[in-house]
């Protein structure tokens, strides 16, 4: 097992006073808190910080830790002195997340049955249980799956404690049923699939936060779907019936005569399903066919003659 330099973790000197330790902890806790930080190793860093603070804020634990001496280096192979007896009890209050503390911590301060800090020399005090912690993972799904529902497999990396008590990044695969009508930002809860419990306590939950993969033609706002619809100038000018893709299949849309670019048309109820289903909004784009030969160029010139028109009239001072 590896020695942990708690002073280094908090970035304080060995003679730092209680206030300096508290300040350092608060600063790092804000930086690495899993609810705030998006850094991949934030959760692991935060646990290290918590473990260091748990020891250094408590004069008795700090004194015991200091007794190990100042000559150890972080990461150095460590075995507790042969006559070392942990004298610390586990009580519910103030010993949060002990389940995730390292084997090093357990060897110095004792622990409860299990692995890591749970695998130490047995909890004094007895009967102390704690629920494992929740884990949050962001998953990207296809828009089509949100529309119709699907079962999908996701891989993610999760910190796990190996049999030696070391924290390792472990790949996990999960199969999840995507409920029909899920929208971005919603969470799917997998009960009992989070961090392991402590002292026989239940495991935490895994929360999957849903995001949509970028889509080739749609973009999404809540339950509403947006689509840019290209029209030829004559379709926009004369009106037309055009086929428009929606998540539920093609529908026919009436384009009124003299439709201008940027106009939005609504297909009611064609967005993502829900108690109140979303709509699909179609934004008109007018695409000018390129003139490739003389007769086509002549045709554009004729248009200019027959229907003189100033598209920049409202830019004039």
């Amino acid at each position: 097992m590896q020695y942990k330099d708690y002073y280094q973790v908090l970035g304080v000197a060995r003679d730092a006073d209680g206030d300096a330790i508290k300040r350092a902890y608060r600063k790092l806790a804000r930086k690495y808190h899993p609810d705030v930080s998006e850094e991949a190793d934030a959760e692991e860093r935060f646990k290290e910080v918590q473990e260091a603070y748990e020891v250094l804020k408590d004069p008795e634990k700090r004194e015991a830790y200091d007794r190990l001496g100042a000559n150890w280096r972080a990461g150095e192979d460590f075995t507790p002195p042969p006559d070392w007896e942990p004298e610390f009890s586990f009580h519910g209050g103030g010993f949060r997340n002990a389940a995730d503390f390292s084997d090093f911590f357990a060897s110095i301060f004792g622990g409860a049955p299990g692995g890591g800090a749970r695998g130490g020399r047995g909890a004094h005090g007895g009967g102390f249980q704690m629920r494992g912690e929740d884990r949050q993972v962001r998953v990207q799904i296809r828009l089509e799956d949100a529309y119709a529902g699907a079962t999908r497999s996701f891989s993610f990396v999760s910190p796990e404690i190996d049999p030696r008590g070391e924290v390792r990044q472990q790949q996990r695969n999960i199969n999840v049923t995507i409920p029909k009508g899920v929208v971005e930002g919603q969470r799917i809860r997998l009960a009992g699939q989070g961090g392991p419990g402590f002292g026989g306590g239940p495991a935490g939950d895994l929360f999957l936060e849903v995001e949509f993969e970028a889509h080739a033609i749609y973009h999404v706002d809540g339950r509403d779907i947006h689509l840019d619809l290209p029209l030829a100038p004559w379709e926009a000018a004369l009106g037309a019936k055009v086929k428009v893709p929606t998540l539920g299949g093609q529908v026919e849309l009436n384009i009124p005569p003299n439709t201008q670019a940027g106009r939005k048309l609504r297909l009611g109820g064609r967005g993502l399903p829900g108690k109140v289903p979303g709509d699909q909004y179609v934004t008109i784009r007018i695409v000018t066919p390129p003139a490739h030969d003389d007769s086509q160029r002549e045709f554009y010139r004729r248009m200019a003659e027959v229907m003189p028109y100033d598209p920049r009239a409202n830019l004039k001072a």
Binding site: I174, V182, I188
Partner: peptide, 17 residues
Amino acid sequence: MTDDFTPGAGELLADDR
């Protein structure tokens, strides 16, 4: 090492539940 969860274990935390 990987582990697999069975499908259907998830519960959607949606506003209408």
